[in-house]
Simulated scan of single mutants.
Amino acid sequence: MPDVIIPGPEGRLEGKYTPGKEEFAPIALILHAHPLGGGNMENLSSVMMYDVFRRRGFATLRFNFRGVGRSQGSYDQGLGELSDAATALDWIQAYNGNAPFSWVAGHSFGAWVGMQLLMRRPEVAGFISVAPPTNMYDFTFLAPCPASGIIIQGSEDKIVPTDDVDRVMSKIRVQKGIEITREIEPGAGHMFANHMPQLEQRIEDYLDRRLPIVFNERKPKD
């Protein structure tokens, strides 16, 4: 898990990177929670999702948004952070030119940034969004959503009510063949502090179901 420094739009971006296990390993990019609320790449959820994809052989990167940790710059209301994420994806793709597809996983603010990124990058074949802040940010950009993924929220989330996520996601259109899965973890709050193993299991189960389909759809051609 080597430390890496990525040249970002506002200076360096601090990250952790693990290369893929195979020549045609896919890519995973992990995006942390809100920078002004203590979000960083060492949050439990970020480390957990990083490890999930790393164990599956993905070329995996997590990093600090601008102004967090040793990353330069300052918080930019999500606009700059989306640019950071795009730059980080470019960086990991440069080292993994044979990757058949990419995956994006984020928590809260990171989920919002990640879902914007997948709208701009057709190589993103799937997403994991943990506690997306639908009551704080506009999600109408998902018009239509181009990739299947899973949204996981805690039933006791006091920051983003489950009813609000249901309301927003019920209005999201998807492309043909795309499915957004919704799951609720009983008793979990916004940060899943005491429910990290349960969150991890839901992610693992979803990837077990979904990845064989994606690999078949995007396997390298001979």
Rank of each mutant, 00 (worst) to 15 (best):
S46C: 13
P186N: 10
H34Y: 03
V113N: 07
A25Q: 11
S102C: 11
M119E: 06
P122I: 12
M169I: 14
L61N: 10
G154I: 00
V104S: 05
M191D: 08
G189N: 14
V52F: 01
I184A: 05
R12K: 15
I172R: 14
V47H: 04
Q175W: 07
I184S: 02
N135G: 03
F65R: 10
K219S: 15
G187L: 03
G15W: 11
I6E: 10
G37L: 13
D138R: 12
N40V: 05
M48D: 02
F109V: 06
V165E: 02
N64H: 11
T87H: 11
E123M: 10
G114I: 02
A33G: 11
A188D: 10
R218Q: 05
E10G: 04
L61C: 08
V104K: 06
A125R: 12
H34E: 01
D138Q: 06
G97N: 06
N194C: 02
V165I: 14
A28H: 04
P132A: 02
F192R: 03
V47L: 12
G20R: 08
S108E: 00
A125M: 09
I203W: 00
G177I: 11
V52W: 00
E204R: 14
A143P: 02
M136H: 05
I27M: 09
Y137W: 13
V174F: 04
S102I: 08
I203P: 00
A147P: 05
A99W: 07
R121K: 13
L31S: 01
F101I: 10
H195L: 05
A59W: 04
V113T: 13
P197I: 00
E217I: 05
R66L: 03
N216G: 09
Y75N: 09
A33C: 12
E42Y: 14
K158Y: 07
P146C: 10
E42V: 04
F139A: 07
R120M: 13
T140P: 07
F101M: 08
D3I: 12
F192W: 03
E42G: 01
S155T: 05
G37F: 10
H190M: 00
E23S: 15
Q198M: 03
A188S: 11
G80Q: 03
D51N: 14
E156G: 00
G15E: 11
H32Y: 12
F101A: 04
L31F: 04
